[in-house]
Deep mutational scan, measured.
Amino acid sequence: IINNLKLIREKKKISQSELAALLEVSRQTINGIEKNKYNPSLQLALKIAYYLNTPLEDIFQW
C-alpha cells in the first residue's frame, strides 16, 4: 500500500492529534498508519478521506 496520509495531512495543516480527534482514534493509530505499521479498515480509510476532503485513492493506493 502506498500511503500519502502524512503528506496530505501536513499540506492541510492538520496535526496527528487533530485528525485523531476527528476520527475518534488515538494519535498513535494515525502515527501507525503514516508509518505503514498499521493498515486502516475500509471504514477508517473512508473517514480519513472524508475529513481531509481528499479522494481515497489519492491517500491510499493499493
Rank of each mutant, 00 (worst) to 15 (best):
L44Y: 02
I2E: 09
F60V: 01
I2T: 13
Y38N: 08
Y38F: 14
F60D: 00
R9F: 04
Y50W: 11
Q61Y: 14
Q43D: 12
I33W: 10
D58Q: 12
L5K: 00
K12D: 03
R27L: 15
N36G: 15
L42N: 05
F60A: 00
Q16P: 04
P55R: 08
S15F: 05
L5D: 01
Q16S: 06
A45F: 04
Y51A: 14
T54P: 00
E34H: 01
S26H: 07
V25T: 06
E34N: 02
P40Q: 01
Y50E: 08
D58N: 09
N53P: 01
E18Q: 13
K13A: 10
L56D: 01
A21Y: 09
Q61E: 12
P40E: 01
L19R: 00
W62V: 10
L19D: 00
K35D: 13
K11D: 08
I30M: 06
N31E: 15
K6D: 02
K11P: 02
N53C: 11
N31G: 09
Y38A: 08
I33G: 01
K37F: 14
L23G: 02
R27H: 10
E34T: 02
F60N: 00
L46E: 08
T29A: 10
I8E: 05
G32H: 14
K13C: 12
R27N: 07
K37S: 11
Q61G: 14
Q28T: 11
T29R: 09
L22I: 11
S26F: 04
Y51N: 05
I48E: 00
I2C: 13
L22S: 09
Y50V: 08
I14H: 03
I14P: 01
T29D: 07
Q28M: 11
N39I: 15
T54F: 05
Y50S: 07
G32N: 15
Y51Q: 07
P40L: 09
I33F: 05
Y50D: 07
R27G: 08
K37G: 07
A45T: 04
S17L: 12
K6A: 10
A20C: 04
N36I: 04
N53Q: 14
K13F: 09
K11M: 12
N39R: 15
E10F: 07
A45E: 02
L56R: 02
Y38I: 15
L44V: 06
E24K: 15
L44R: 03
K47E: 06
S41E: 06
Y38R: 10
A45R: 08
L42G: 05
R9A: 02
I30W: 03
E24H: 15
Y50F: 14
N53F: 05
R9V: 02
A49F: 03
A21S: 11
Y38Q: 09
K12Y: 05
L42F: 13
S17G: 13
P55K: 09
E10M: 13
Q61K: 10
E34P: 01
G32T: 09
G32V: 08
I1D: 07
